[in-house]
Design a protein around this nucleic acid. Sequence first.
DNA 1: TTCTAAAATTGAGTCAATTCTGTTTTTATG
DNA 2: CATAAAAACAGAATTGACTCAATTTTAGAA
Lengths: 204, 204
Amino acid sequence: MSGLRARQKADRHRRIIEAAAELFREAGYEGAKIEAIAAQAEVSVGTIYNYYQNKGDILGAIVSLEVNEVLNAGQGVVARPPANVGDALDTLIGIYIEHSLHYLSKEMWRQAMAISTQLPDSPFGQAYTGLDRSLTEQIRALIARLQALGLVRQDIDGAALGELIFNNMNMMFIEFVKRDAARIPELRAAIRRQNRILVAAIAV
Amino acid sequence: MSGLRARQKADRHRRIIEAAAELFREAGYEGAKIEAIAAQAEVSVGTIYNYYQNKGDILGAIVSLEVNEVLNAGQGVVARPPANVGDALDTLIGIYIEHSLHYLSKEMWRQAMAISTQLPDSPFGQAYTGLDRSLTEQIRALIARLQALGLVRQDIDGAALGELIFNNMNMMFIEFVKRDAARIPELRAAIRRQNRILVAAIAV
DNA sequence: TTCTAAAATTGAGTCAATTCTGTTTTTATG
DNA sequence: CATAAAAACAGAATTGACTCAATTTTAGAA
């Protein structure tokens, strides 16, 4: 028996997230008042705080949905990477970046990133750090795969390399969301240019 | 004539910054109430908002002092770098990191970083981006210097390399301030390990 | 069905950043 | 030295995130 209580709970969670996502998009993070989210979700302010510790955690739940989708999409590339180190990296990073603005606006990303540094121990802060780690791990997995395929030198420190690539990409992405005028193609080109140095060093 | 008004203004600026720096350290950023800062600086709340757009900008002014000091210290390394690519990078990065907690606690860094992503167009947001750019520029200058000294290959894309090194270091520093337990020696060791890959690729 | 304890919801109240408006101080001018 | 305009100040009022005590709803036993 799934229980009335459990069903109502799941339903309220969903309604809150949907209401918040809509209002965040429409009015921006700051502009979306908790009272408005509560009204739209047809619950009270108190209930929202029963489900989420603070406003940031609501945004956090939305971000997690997005990043998990991206991680999923990335698995395909790791499993069957292009037969060229530069292209393999570019393809994986391309998936991350192209998906990134699907559900989240730049403003929402800015807020999410800010909260994750501001409150690293909050539920969302920890979740965000975990997501970053998963992305780093996936890049590392790609490198290991390329090593197995004989496309990357065996003596390369895969862990350090994965961190280096992720950190650079992430920082570039942060700068990207900070400037509303910045465009995806330029971002990808800049990262390709940076990675070229690495590719030259690690390719067999 | 320096004008009474101008002198009073400078004096109030100074008093506000000093009061804020003290209270941020003692009580943390959130714990330092604007009313308390105003009282300690012997001005009214309204006056503080006449001088700074928001609480974050007060912190911003303190951060700028710190980073400018670091940039200054870095110039010495660029002028006379160790005669080895790995050591040269490590020395410059070491200066940045070792200075970093001199005036600012990790909590203050977290807040500063958060604000700079949250409000990239605020006075502080723009200043912070400018500081990042200056640091990147200094790393680039070091690379150019090493190229001139014949220690780094001439065909290396110095601009892209500088960004790569800065972005990685900066991201590592962000993770460092997010974990109170993290220690400086481990941070430096991790960055050295990551840079080793690059050094191998670019050293003559 | 009825009752009770546990779980969840509610919304008025609290707290602190920011805004606003009337007052005071400084400067420039005759 | 008087005075009006400009600049800066003060602190009360506003706003919005978050809390908490009272109330309602649910699950399960009798």
